[in-house]
């Protein structure tokens, strides 16, 4: 029997993986993928809660999140591609013309 706890633990693990990826990896593409992980973790928690509460609002939010995440990935990839064309790198540590 899969309970709410299982959903939440999995969601917390996926979210932590996403945060770790954002903090530790330096490749812009991998960071974008980690952001997707974070969004999916939130989706998982939403769906788990929606099932437990017997309420569909959480599920509808999860649907919207998936759509918006696709749009965000498109915009993010376009910007990373533009950067790669100019610099030949997608490493965020090597991109540093803006400094305070």
């Amino acid at each position: 029997m899969i309970t709410l706890q299982h959903y939440l633990v999995l969601s917390a693990i996926v979210f932590s993986l996403g945060v770790a990826g954002v903090l530790l990896r330096r490749n812009a593409l991998v960071i974008l993928m980690s952001v997707e992980l974070m969004l999916n973790a939130a989706n998982l928690a939403l769906l788990g809660f929606a099932r437990q509460l017997g309420d569909t609002t959480g599920q509808s939010l999860a649907l919207f999140v998936m759509t918006v995440a696709a749009a965000e990935a498109a915009v993010g990839l376009a910007l990373v591609l533009a950067l790669f064309r100019g610099r030949g790198t997608v490493n965020v540590d090597e991109v540093r013309s803006l400094r305070g």
Partner: peptide
Amino acid sequence: EAGMKYVLFGGVASGVMLFGMS
């Protein structure tokens, strides 16, 4: 470069916000 930095920071912020919402 600014566009890329913005999209990365923004993605992380909206991910964290969404997790809070859930």
